[in-house]
């Protein structure tokens, strides 16, 4: 037996339920999953390809809903997130939880029934990893939280690949590693110029715990590892020249911008031009790199 909602607050609008899935983050998930799917050897029927991307997107939306269900207290004190449906009081937490769990189950079953159960298990694990390991367990307890969160965001291209081949080989592992090592410099650059918000929420974000100087050095260190991982598919003969040349140029620019961040000593968020430039370029970098993986495969084919 349930109690019927008799207030506007108890009946979330469709717009707010959609906002709960973090549509902007989902666009990156859709893009990287699609690239993984298109770069995989073999073919998949367009209807099944569409279904696989839909299931991965719904899984990402479910993770985002569960994340916001758990983090409504943090979201309420941060300016950037205070207008989300839960902290703004437009939806109750139970609705978000039910929506998140329902969407998770549906996405995994859809993937299993329509595509294969290996990629369905992979998708289920990625939702569990983001919602439980990252959100509930590690985000509030370690300054390396974003590194762990990066792993959760790095699954989509590997799942897209597994939807076509039914397995995981070295190339999808490298695609995973690219997003994994890209996340810390991308996110810490943002955290540097919105530092005050994270301190207010009590989230142990790297600039809050280790200080700006250490964070800047770590950004540069991660950018060097990222460069090695990004060029690896070409160096190991898994991709052609198109990807090889693009990844070298893009990674040189990324490392150069990270070096500028490492050398910067600014404490005022308004003056953090190097950090803002790196943050903007990092988004372009990931889109360009993954697009090149697909273009390279089409050229090689």
């Amino acid at each position: 037996m349930t109690t019927a909602s008799t207030t506007l607050h108890g009946l979330a609008s469709a717009k707010d339920l959609f906002a709960l899935t973090k549509p902007r983050v989902m666009s990156l998930v859709i893009f990287t999953a699609l690239c993984g799917l298109l770069a995989a050897p073999g073919t998949i029927h367009p209807v099944l390809g569409f279904t696989a991307i839909l299931a991965i997107s719904l899984g990402a939306g479910a993770s985002a809903a569960l994340n916001q269900w758990y983090e409504s207290d943090i979201d309420a004190v941060m300016k950037r997130t205070s207008q989300r449906p839960l902290p703004a009081g437009r939806m109750d937490r139970e609705t978000a939880l039910h929506f998140g769990i329902g969407l998770s189950v549906f996405s995994v079953v859809l993937m299993g029934v329509a595509i294969n159960w290996f990629s369905a298990a992979f998708l289920a694990f990625s939702i569990f990893f983001y919602a439980v390991v990252y959100t509930i367990w590690l985000k509030r307890s370690t300054p390396q939280n974003i590194v762990i969160g990066g792993a959760a965001g790095a699954f989509p291209p590997a799942i897209g690949w597994a939807a076509v081949t039914g397995d995981v080989t070295l190339m999808p592992v490298l695609l995973f590693a690219i997003i994994f090592f890209w996340t810390p410099p991308h996110f810490w650059a943002l955290a540097l110029f919105v530092n005050s918000d994270y301190s207010k929420a009590g989230v142990p974000m790297m600039p809050v715990v280790a200080g700006r100087r250490s964070t800047r050095k770590q950004i540069f260190a991660y950018s060097l590892v990222l460069a090695v991982v990004a060029v690896a598919p070409f160096a190991l003969g898994l991709t052609g020249l198109v990807y090889g040349i693009s990844s070298i140029i893009l990674s040189l620019v990324f490392s150069g911008l990270s070096l500028k961040v490492a050398m910067s000593e600014t404490f005022e968020p308004e003056d953090m031009e190097a950090e803002k430039r790196l943050f903007k370029f990092s988004i372009f970098y990931l889109f360009a790199l993954f697009a090149t993986v697909v273009v390279d495969r089409l050229v090689m084919a």
Binding site: S5, T6, L8, L11
Partner: peptide
């Protein structure tokens, strides 16, 4: 089976209208 939540005050006519519009949109 559902029952009406009596712990909440009854809705005003405007709120009821907005509530029904939201129900319709979701449906």
């Amino acid at each position: 089976m559902s029952e009406i939540d009596t712990s909440q005050p009854p809705m005003s006519p405007e709120e009821q209208k907005a509530f029904q519009a939201r129900q319709k949109q979701r449906a």
